[in-house]
Simulated scan of single mutants.
Amino acid sequence: MTHGFDLDGRLRQRESADLRRDLAVAERVGDRTRFADDPKGGRIKFGGEAVVFAANNYLGLADDARVQRAAELGARTVGTGAGASRLVTGDTRIHRALERDLAACKGTERALVFSSGYAANVGTIDALSPDVVFSDELNHASIIDGCRVGASETVVYDHCDADDLRAKMAERAEEGASDESWLVVTDSVFSMDGDVAPLELLCDAAEEHGAWLMVDEAHATGLFGEGGGIVQREGLSDRVDVQLGTLSKALASQGGYVAGDEALVEHLVNAARSFVFSTGLAPPAAAAARESLRIARETNQVERLWDNVETLREGLSEMGYDVLGETHVLPVLVGDRTDALELAERLRADGVVAPAIRPPTVPDGTSRIRVAPTATHTAEDIARCLDAFETAGAEVGLL
């Protein structure tokens, strides 16, 4: 008898189901780079340069000189790492400055920065410890895990369906549990479908039952509502109880944040275990995120992104592809998982990196290529992407 773990067997099962993932080493972070297969300790051998349409670096700021200078200044003036939990010695003026800017941008009393968006979701839900979470069926894994850790019960409502949410809340209310704490949680922009949650309708449903609403703006922060997100675009800052997001996508850094009223943030400082028991966000990351937020709010970087999004969406649609969503995330629906994987491979052979997304990440029959343009992709990059999709689509038999 053995009480160990057959990890080789688990890996074989993943491989047989075509679900095993491998690391790919990038030479640099940017719109164009060379890649190598995972060297597993050996020598890295990079191939030819490819154009990357797979990153969440939406504003193209990860290798921006202004952001790099801010990170360098943060390292030189404060340090490369916080050195401890912020409740010990790791709370610095750079953290406070970033939090003030985030709170101002989100229209809240205060903000709190975590080491990652994942930590922010799990820590916040756990600290609130709701009796019931009503969660959109396509919410991110970090929300799902937060519910597993912190919620007594999770009720899943149909994707972006405020009527189904309202019905499930009414059903729960009929059971007579009037003293329960309820939390409605949703992403604002859904990263695999490119669609947007109906936040005003969700606010209405939550308010009818005295529930709180928590919105994860991971894929929206910096891109809507003068840098805030969908909540700000829709003018709902005073109706959303918990605003959350990441610093690692459009803001080109690392970390997560929660924004809300003073009582919420003070409670999280004391009760969110992923904040209390984690070393503070590295000062260079905080400084970089702050500069990226400034660029997003004060320059035309966002407009440049939307110009590229429109060009790509129109070009792909005119070819005959079904492009889902309404945002900067462009899911090109393929359907069959084998076709999607082959399309991604042929795009890669043409020097365009755009990943195939297949079950279980998305439902059966809805495999897709996720295209993510950035503000810094050039007209030549966009044309190369469209040419690759046209050639590869014909080769796979999709066009």
Rank of each mutant, 00 (worst) to 15 (best):
G4M: 08
G4I: 11
R10Q: 15
Q13F: 03
R14Q: 15
V25K: 10
A26W: 14
V29F: 13
V29R: 11
D37P: 04
R43C: 00
R43Y: 00
R43F: 00
K45V: 09
G47V: 10
G48T: 13
E49C: 05
V52F: 15
A62S: 15
R66A: 15
R66P: 12
Q68F: 13
A70I: 09
L73V: 14
A75C: 06
T77M: 11
V78P: 10
V78Y: 04
G79Q: 04
G81I: 14
A82D: 05
A84M: 01
S85H: 00
R86C: 15
T89E: 09
A97Q: 07
C105S: 02
C105W: 06
R110D: 04
L112N: 00
F114C: 02
Y118A: 13
A119Y: 02
A120G: 01
G123A: 05
T124V: 00
I125H: 01
D126A: 08
D126Q: 03
D131Y: 05
F134A: 09
N139L: 12
H140R: 06
I143R: 01
G146M: 02
V149W: 03
V149S: 05
D158K: 13
H159G: 04
C160L: 14
D161Y: 05
R166M: 12
A167Y: 05
A173K: 05
A173I: 02
G176N: 00
D179Q: 04
E180C: 00
L183W: 06
V185A: 10
D193P: 00
L202A: 09
L202N: 07
C203V: 15
A205G: 07
E207K: 12
A211V: 03
W212T: 11
L213R: 08
L213G: 06
V215Y: 02
V215C: 07
V215G: 04
E226Q: 15
G228D: 10
G235H: 10
D238L: 09
V240T: 08
L244Y: 00
T246C: 11
L251V: 12
A252R: 07
G255V: 12
G255I: 13
Y257F: 15
A259S: 15
D261C: 13
V265C: 09
E266W: 07
A271I: 02
L281D: 10
L281K: 07
P283Q: 06
A287C: 06
A289R: 02
S292P: 07
A296T: 09
E298N: 02
T299W: 04
Q301L: 05
E303D: 14
R304C: 01
W306P: 05
E310N: 12
T311R: 14
T311M: 12
L312N: 04
L316K: 04
Y321V: 05
V323L: 00
G325V: 05
E326Y: 03
V329N: 03
L330C: 06
A340D: 06
E342R: 00
L343S: 05
E345M: 05
R348W: 04
P360D: 01
V362K: 09
D364V: 08
S367K: 04
R368A: 09
R370K: 07
A372M: 13
A372E: 14
A375W: 09
A375Q: 08
A379V: 13
E380F: 03
D381V: 12
L386G: 11
L386N: 11
L386D: 12
F389V: 10
G393H: 04
E395H: 03
E395T: 01
V396D: 02
G397W: 03
